[in-house]
Design a binder for these strands. Structure first.
Lengths: 229, 229
DNA sequence: CCGGAAAACAAACGTATGTTCGTTTAGCCG
DNA sequence: CGGCTAAACGAACATACGTTTGTTTTCCGG
């Protein structure tokens, strides 16, 4: 037998893409097999190769497209915001959360399936991620220079903020108690408060005052080198 | 051939455990195969079954032990801290970051390999995770009641904090520029500032003022139901 | 010392997976 | 309309994987 009536390459390719996102998100790239992917789309396994080169290539494309979309969304948000440090920072963080709410599955994959990429494929993806991170670091540093932010280490703060704001994709479910607007608002509040310099305490001294036993032992750990990565 | 001179069940089992953590962390549970695990330990694949029941059982045990250890560490930290809301919260957050720095690989697995657990195995693990989360939520609520914290939604704040503080395990590397003490300190500063109520703005109004284009569109999204999970 | 249990080896099994390849049919364009 | 390309089917291939099983050797305790 052969080609099915009504088949449409573009439509099938899109169905493959959507099904792949769903399945990878649900069980992981390595655990998803192409037979179930094909079944999800409604074609035979071998037919997938009309639309993808390899299983690995499929993952790479999904992640590459996602990163490009994320970078584009960020650029658009920044371009639409006033050219002031805090406004830029807000715009960045807001679009981050919103994008992550809308495309939580792709975000999840892009973050947690890096290990499944072969080195040659991982490299460009990592480069795009760094571009995104560096942008946020730049914004934090600009805010600090303008005297509007107080961060001890822009890179650490950036990682912490990204982790916090990216975390929504692990638990957010459309139709839940809170709509995107509320979630964005709360996360911005938490994030911006965290870097505002309006904290509760200084550093180690306050922590010790808390009397937490693990902290005492921590003091004996030697400090490290230069870069966090 | 047969049993090797000098073989020791306890030692081999521990070596399996360590190698499994390393390999799963590096490539993922589904992508790790038992032949390479056995090779890493220095035994034949079939010999693994003297020490594990199944591949799935191995993952379950690793995650169960980790969760138990994490809960124990938390209890110890809280027991050693003064019985006041903020001191308790600090103790919780500090031990969280410290534990995550020390056992980053296990933490990574426990967070990102949930999908690989069969339902019967996932259930007890998820229960322990909820226990941990609920504890933090309780602490945040206690802080709010004591008037020392200002969080719009304790659960959201808890998720955000946990995401931020757990994030270190994705990038921290011993011997880096920053030692554990510095990392713990900065994260506590960021986290506690975030929930202190000393934020920069209110809510949606301030965000709109930022002029971020995506936020305008967000307003048209209908609010959801009751629970975030 | 001896026997039983433990721990390892080696081989094999049944199943699964990514991919290739030949064939058939549909769709499109000249 | 006809030819060529695209898209699907169906079968098969080569490899890989989790696991079992029989055998051999070591270790430990009575």
């Amino acid at each position: 037998m052969a080609r099915i009536t009504g088949s449409n390459g573009g439509r099938t390719a899109e169905a493959i893409r959507r099904a792949a996102i769903r399945l990878i998100h649900r069980q992981g790239f390595a655990a998803m097999n192409l037979r179930e992917l094909a079944a999800e789309v409604g074609i035979q396994p071998g037919s997938l190769y009309n639309h993808i080169e390899t299983k690995q290539g499929l993952l790479f494309e999904l992640m590459r497209e996602h990163m490009q979309d994320l970078l584009s969304a960020m650029e658009a948000a920044l371009a639409a915001a006033p050219d002031e440090p805090m406004a830029q920072l807000r715009a960045f963080l807001a679009q981050h959360v919103l994008y992550h709410l809308e495309r939580k599955q792709e975000v999840y994959i892009a973050n947690f399936e890096l290990r499944a990429l072969e080195p040659a494929n991982a490299e460009p993806i990592l480069a795009m991620r760094r571009e995104y991170e560096d942008r946020l670091i730049g914004l934090l540093e600009a805010g600090a220079r303008a005297g509007e932010l107080q961060v001890a280490d822009a890179r650490i703060a950036a990682y912490a903020l990204l982790a916090m704001l990216t975390g929504v994709c692990t638990w957010y479910r459309p139709g839940g108690r809170l709509g995107p607007e509320e979630i964005v608002a709360q996360h911005l509040e938490l994030a911006l408060s965290g870097v505002s310099g309006a904290g509760l305490g200084q550093r180690a001294p306050d922590i010790s005052a808390g009397g937490s036993a693990p902290i005492e032992r921590m003091r004996s750990i030697p400090a490290g080198g230069r870069t966090p990565g």
